[in-house]
Computed example of a mutant assay.
Amino acid sequence: MFLNGMLHVLRTGCPWRDMHERYGKWNSIYVRFRRWAEQGVWDARQELPAPNPRAMLADRSYDSDSFRQDLLIHGILPVIPSRKGRSVPQKTDWRHYRDRNRIERMFSHLKQMRRIATRYDKTALSFMSFLNIAAARLWIRSFVNVT
């Protein structure tokens, strides 16, 4: 019941006080959300070891020689199309660049949750906690009805 109330607030972006009463008392759900956020319940996915990035997929706005050089120094392959007005166009791995679409769709799915898109939260802890809940919800949905 508590988690459903939190998901409702995440999806609709409503203030805690305006949450529908079928989820219970708004204050109880808010207090539990804050307590779990302070205890780091929503940060569990961040403890997973993240591999070092091998490539940086970005759009044309990131096309600069200094940015490309910094990526290469750190061992990261820049997959960035050249700007149209560039005097010496850089080669782009277009097959690799197509994966950028998946990243854009993920941000689109996150922004469908109004609490994330509008950043109503007053504290960074609340915003990051809602962001973690939204990411976990999207991750779990990726396993449902997969054949």
Rank of each mutant, 00 (worst) to 15 (best):
M1K: 12
M1G: 10
F2T: 12
L3S: 01
M6L: 12
M6S: 10
L7M: 14
L10R: 04
R11W: 06
G13R: 01
C14G: 01
C14Q: 06
D18Q: 13
D18A: 15
H20A: 15
R22Q: 14
R22A: 10
Y23S: 06
G24R: 08
K25G: 12
N27Q: 14
I29M: 01
R32M: 11
R35A: 12
A37I: 07
W42R: 07
W42C: 00
A44F: 09
A44P: 06
Q46Y: 11
Q46I: 05
Q46K: 13
E47W: 10
P49S: 09
N52L: 13
N52V: 10
P53S: 01
P53V: 09
A58E: 07
D59E: 07
Y62A: 06
D63Q: 02
D70E: 15
L71A: 00
I73Q: 14
H74M: 11
I76S: 01
P81T: 05
S82G: 10
R83W: 02
R83G: 11
P89I: 06
R102W: 02
R102N: 13
I103R: 06
R105T: 13
M106Y: 11
M106V: 13
M113F: 15
I116A: 05
A117T: 05
A117G: 02
T118L: 14
D121L: 01
K122M: 03
K122R: 15
K122T: 05
S126G: 09
F127I: 02
F127G: 06
S129D: 05
N132L: 05
A134H: 05
A135K: 08
A136S: 14
L138E: 05
I140M: 13
R141Y: 08
R141W: 13
S142F: 00
V144E: 15
V146F: 08
T147A: 14
